[in-house]
Nucleic acid binder design. Sequence first.
DNA 1: CTGTTAGCGCTTTCAA
DNA 2: TTGAAAGCGCTAACAG
Lengths: 348, 348
Amino acid sequence: MASKNKAGPAPAWQATGAATLIDVARVAGVSPITVSRALNQPELLTEKTLAKVAAAVLSTGYVKNMVAGALASNRSKLVALLLPTIANTIFADTVQAATDTLAASGYQVLLGLSGYETAREEALVETILSRRPDGIIITGTSHTELTRQRLLQARIPIVETWDMTPTPIDMLVGFSHEAVGAAMAAGLLGRGYRRFAILTLDDPRGARRNAGLVAALTEQGVTVVNTDTLPAPATMPLGREGAARLFAAPKKRRPDVIVCSSDTLALGAMTEAASRGLRVPEDIAIMGFGDLHYAAHTVPPLSTVSIDGAAIGRLAAQRLLDRFNHVAMPAAMRVTDTGFQLLQRGST
Amino acid sequence: MASKNKAGPAPAWQATGAATLIDVARVAGVSPITVSRALNQPELLTEKTLAKVAAAVLSTGYVKNMVAGALASNRSKLVALLLPTIANTIFADTVQAATDTLAASGYQVLLGLSGYETAREEALVETILSRRPDGIIITGTSHTELTRQRLLQARIPIVETWDMTPTPIDMLVGFSHEAVGAAMAAGLLGRGYRRFAILTLDDPRGARRNAGLVAALTEQGVTVVNTDTLPAPATMPLGREGAARLFAAPKKRRPDVIVCSSDTLALGAMTEAASRGLRVPEDIAIMGFGDLHYAAHTVPPLSTVSIDGAAIGRLAAQRLLDRFNHVAMPAAMRVTDTGFQLLQRGST
DNA sequence: CTGTTAGCGCTTTCAA
DNA sequence: TTGAAAGCGCTAACAG
């Protein structure tokens, strides 16, 4: 071994900036593969060897390079999380829970925000797949044919979320939006409302909730008197304007209840009602969706459908982890219905 | 070239599942590097060559492997985004804006949620750095010494956000929390309040806002009559309980205004006030922080400090992109104060 | 405008 | 329990 005294020149890794596994190996006096094992499967090595490596890691300031590791091992320890948007929405809890669950097992999250157009999702999926994630959590079940194909060809576990379908790509954690619509219909009909208006975003899942609502109403001989479809994203002013239009409609199209596709729109509608001196729910009832944390604290408290977003994130992540670890998964577990809760509060 | 007729066996890439650049090159009848160029620098190639490659990409179903690309080029096209949390918070807009801005330039976001403990941040930073991101956007300016060191050693552009300091690690986009506190003091003193209580989370930035508030009050000879520090995360029930304690305090510690470290806590405090028949702001004034989208729609509308989270995200991302593209950056631009707005609404 | 050569930093596979 | 050789899929650097 070359003498390495105080007078010697700075070692290579110090000059270059980034120490590699090889630098660590050299300093520790072992082979590179031993360093790799010390970091990834320490149980295979002697205490003594581990100590040598640990010291070398410290003295070199070595930081693992997972890019090289991923290429060599064909496992990236990366999970892609695809959502329409994260701003002002119900998905935040899902992201938090999924990230936490995955992090606990050493996986990191690659975030993809796809907007609400399937075309953008298509492009995003291609980019994301180029990172070779070990698994994917994707929002919704309606994707373009190309997206489905690519996802399938990637041959990695996929979890679709926040929706329900009999034909998932792979696994699924969510709930039925049609069922949500039907539950709203039942709850509101039960309270005596008969003149329904819908204030909705231009969003596929919202559309399916509306379809479920309309179907259940039709079954009872009740028809929707008015529908206003708004461009995403949901904002309160948007909800307020939409409600204003509904209130201004000719008398025979004026509702006694407004079903909104999100709490945010609903809160806007409540504001508009208040500004017109309309009492909620006596003059006009209002229902939201999402159970954002303020929903119970509006005046009157907002009726809404509560979704456990954190549970969805946690379960979706867990399904992936189980697959990674080759845990046996009965066919029934590939689809998990997390359900929802219809909360009738003061506004209906 | 070997004859490749209809009768021939399926090509290798079809058997293996994933086509590589080499497979594409073979099919296109060009060299691998030409395929690489066709994908990354098409302007260097002939229309004709591009067409051949495009056809081969299609027929092989090739999906770029950015893991290998990152290793070879030492550029990952990945930006790490580190936040305390994403659930129920003001950071959502920042994430959305940063992600959008970066995506437009072909960068993807690696999400890291660090919690509010610097120790967890430390571990997270190490993991994140092992992915060799091209840049980092990190929340806050108070990190452990080890974190700072590692960040510095990574020799990549760093943007700290949502805070202000004279000594950033590299670049900074944010605002001064001390200034926020001072502005709150000025605004509230101006409305005649003299008995201040603080309802705050155990969070470093909140603490600095409080410090700014207290300093400004002290200057005017006003002291804080009571402070209640709550464990993160902020929830409305937590705010409500905190407010209840403040209201139940002995008379001489009872406030005429409660300054909350977040809108969520403030909304809880308003609920507690209402439940006790206290009028806001006549009996008790309340101020929040964050300007969550419901703040203007509470009853009465919540006074708060508005932060443009989207601007922070967009600017932070832009600073990184400028660095990546070697855009000249005057020293002054390394620190950007995005400011804030004190909104006195009905609750004060 | 296109190709050749070499190698990024790690892990797999086999061998000792 | 440790090591040697080979190679993951791509791109930098240079050549033509």
